[in-house]
Amino acid sequence: MSIDLQTVKKIASLSRISVTDAEAEAMVPELNNILGWVEQLGEVDVTGVEPMTAVIPNHLRLRDDVVTDGNVRDKVLANAPQAEHGFFAVPKVIE
């Protein structure tokens, strides 16, 4: 599978990274080169193999239903580029 300029732009858009046409064009061979290389995995026979789910055998722990956190609004907002009246502020979203 090889990707074209259109696909690169689509991936950039899905990734929310704005790219100029020149940047996108430069990425086409770069990404194709890498994707072409990883595609060699297709030749591995994986019949009957389950995808790895846990790197080291371990089980998912569940925590108790107790309020142990929150009430840290100052900490939550401390690094915000724009915070007003206890909220994060973003450009107006039209729904």
């Binding site: 990274i17 770069e30 990883v38 591995v44 995808p51």
Partner: peptide, 28 residues
């Protein structure tokens, strides 16, 4: 570059061929 590759290999229609296959090879 890596975000773009990651986005691509997870995108609709490619997930199994790339990501699922990779997790299987990882198991091997």
């Amino acid at each position: 570059r890596r975000i773009m590759i990651g986005t691509y290999v997870l995108s609709a229609g490619f997930y199994d061929a790339y990501y699922t296959q990779a997790q299987k090879v990882r198991a091997l």
